[in-house]
Nucleic acid binder design. Structure first.
Lengths: 122, 122
DNA sequence: GTAACCAATTACCTCAACGTAACTAATGGG
DNA sequence: CCCATTAGTTACGTTGAGGTAATTGGTTAC
């Protein structure tokens, strides 16, 4: 018989899975993975797609995602340099869940704004 | 005819929906909403369930979620004091998506750990 | 009547996240 | 010859997230 009880739990402070949750439950990660779901893209296009992200933060986010095996980084020996990023197979399993989060934020923001105004007016 | 094109986009830097994404794409939010999916709970029990969270961070997270209309806060006039938190209808629509993120972290952490070791060994 | 106690919050401090700006390398175009 | 281009890196300063510990207020125990 196979084991169905989870070996890991994000609710345990020292469980490694929490470090993974911290990485994926992040606004920049959500946007990067969502955009990369449309296919491989180079650094500059990602930077343009995700309005307001600084080059430094995008570099750091992509490197962390590469380290976790969620994106691949391909450097072309060209001038000016060209670097393309793409979701891995593992990364694709994350695309839908993170897309859902982005869509949730967009779908419910009007209601959330009203809630905030009511709360602040108390 | 109804409008199907999104009015909001998290990819726009100044779009309010990005503030909502920042709130929900967060490790503490993911854990709190996931745990509260099992039903209303008092502060101390939440604190115990989410191993390692400080009282301050839990208070702040809950207050922000309450402000956005994702959880309700009910104070009982008792001694010692008792405060219970519960997902709102809006909050429930967020439960499944955030549960998926927690489960993803737990399911794939072994693979992620291997990826990190390979990356660091380059 | 004061000491202990509990749930929840706050005050204070530290450290990580983030933005800005300057700088790099190698080539092609004016 | 000099400037633009692309994907960084580094330095520096600011803001925000987070941990620790004291505090509050009313009740019970001594």
């Amino acid at each position: 018989m196979s084991q169905t009880v989870p070996d890991w739990s994000v609710l345990a402070a020292t469980c490694p899975s929490r470090t993974s949750l911290a990485r994926i439950a992040n606004k920049w990660t959500a946007m990067v993975v969502t955009v990369l779901g449309n296919g491989r893209m180079r650094f500059g296009d990602l930077r343009t797609s995700i309005d307001g992200i600084s080059g430094k933060v995008l570099t750091e986010t992509l490197r962390d995602l590469e380290r976790d095996g969620i994106v691949t980084r391909q450097v072309f020996a060209e001038v000016p340099p060209r670097v393309e990023y793409e979701l891995t197979e593992l990364g694709f399993t994350l695309h839908e869940p993170l897309l859902v989060l982005c869509r949730w934020a967009e779908k419910h923001i009007a209601e959330v704004i009203v809630n905030r105004e009511m709360y602040d007016a108390r």
